[in-house]
Design a protein around this nucleic acid. Structure first.
Lengths: 236, 236
DNA sequence: CAGGCAAAACGCGGATACTGATGGAGTGAA
DNA sequence: TTCACTCCATCAGTATCCGCGTTTTGCCTG
């Protein structure tokens, strides 16, 4: 997994231990420096102590809701951005105002890769200094996260949301075999309980769209019995 | 979001914590340097201490009204412009006279993007030095904020107020996908609690007026499942 | 070494749910 | 009245996921 150049410090706040662990672990693995808290009170204290660059904040906490936490943080002079976690049905209609300022939100159940991508996007917007680009490149393949657009050799390729997330995951890990289980864990929502054959289907969809030229070396390769791999041309 | 080049310092005064927070956060993100106050007394003190370039001032404050605050500021030799926040049902005679100097006013409930635009407009008028232009251009599309006018290829296009605000938001963020939630948060008034499908309607209206030529590449593009995007032709 | 076998991967087709585009009705304000 | 705005219903087009039959591949055995 590509690391963010200067490691940003994140504060993860969720009362469900499973989610908190899941997030902490994968964000840490993504190269972030992670501090976790289980409720609003601890979150405020942790913010004071660690002064994070961004917070991932569940809106439903046992002691106070995420908005209150945010308001108190801001009142205390902490102006780092927040990525809110909300239940899917809260968001569709009611809860608004989550994207004000540099903030953003992700609905539960989320896919891990999606959360990482959103966090990176928010950090990119609020710390525009770094030359950290929204575009990932592998060979003549370009994936632009801001525009949500994929090009191969300049040609725009149209992908469905899941195809896009899958390709992004592959492109973040070029020349590394990714098992179907890994792909499921990162790209699909964490409560998905279908089987891994769905990954085969989506790999097949992707191949049809990005590896349509049968003469060229395929970017997506199968490692039978192990997983899949996105290969760069200049690799051996 | 486009930032203002030389950061101007703003004083935000409102007694409702939510509004104060909402404004502070989004103005800060818009590139301003923000100081906030909850009442007239604190506002006067803050003006002394921080010497802002502009104040955003609620006319209804617990201790004194916004006009009194302004009068005292002026008496103290502070002549920075003020953008007043007023209730929609305030009588006209109260509101007239607000715009006499370089001042302006916005009615509550406001749209965040609208407030930012008005503040920029006032600053533009009072600090004409900066090469900060009132005209946003994307391809052959021009939006003139001062004249409140939109042209495509020289041809003037007539838009309703909401259509105008929506287009402005899109044009301020070219080549970036904007979700319906983001659009609602920035373009609609903060107390709007209808659902996001209204955005679809307005996108549809805009397309009819702006992308009426079916042969040309559409400026407004749909990213299914993600949001909308205003595309520039010269995409790298 | 050839042939056969089984597991893995693939591709297709279809059920189902969802998303977005659009037209029209209702409401309220100028 | 007319214009903006909002909401709703409908329709078409997509996306997702699963199941099943086919193909490929690696391996084992004779």
């Amino acid at each position: 997994m590509k690391k963010t150049a200067p490691e940003a410090k994140l504060l993860v706040v969720d009362d469900e231990p499973n989610i908190r662990e899941l997030l902490s672990t994968s964000l840490r693995f993504a190269g972030f420096d992670v501090v976790a808290a289980a409720n609003g009170r601890d979150a405020l204290a942790a913010a004071e102590t660690h002064n994070p660059d961004l917070a991932v904040l569940d809106v439903m906490l046992p002691d106070m809701d995420g908005f209150t936490v945010t308001r108190r943080l801001r009142a205390a002079g902490r102006h780092f951005p927040v990525v809110f976690l909300t239940a899917r049905d809260d968001t569709d209609d009611k809860v608004t105002g989550l994207t004000v300022g540099g903030d953003d939100y992700v609905t539960k159940p989320f896919s891990l890769d999606e959360v990482v991508a959103r966090i990176r996007a928010v950090l990119r917007r609020t710390h525009p200094l770094e030359d950290d680009d929204a575009v990932i490149r592998v060979d003549d393949l370009e994936l632009d996260d801001d525009a949500h657009e994929v090009r191969r050799g300049g040609e725009t390729i149209d992908l469905s949301p899941t195809e896009f997330k899958l390709l992004r995951y592959l492109m973040m890990n070029p020349n590394r075999v990714l098992s179907k289980a890994q792909i499921l864990d990162h790209v699909w929502e964490y409560d998905f309980n279908g089987d891994a054959s769905i990954v085969e289907s989506y790999i097949s969809y992707l191949r049809r769209k990005i590896d349509r030229n049968p003469d060229a070396v395929a970017l997506i390769q199968t490692k039978r019995g192990v997983g899949y791999l996105l290969r760069t041309a200049d690799k051996r």
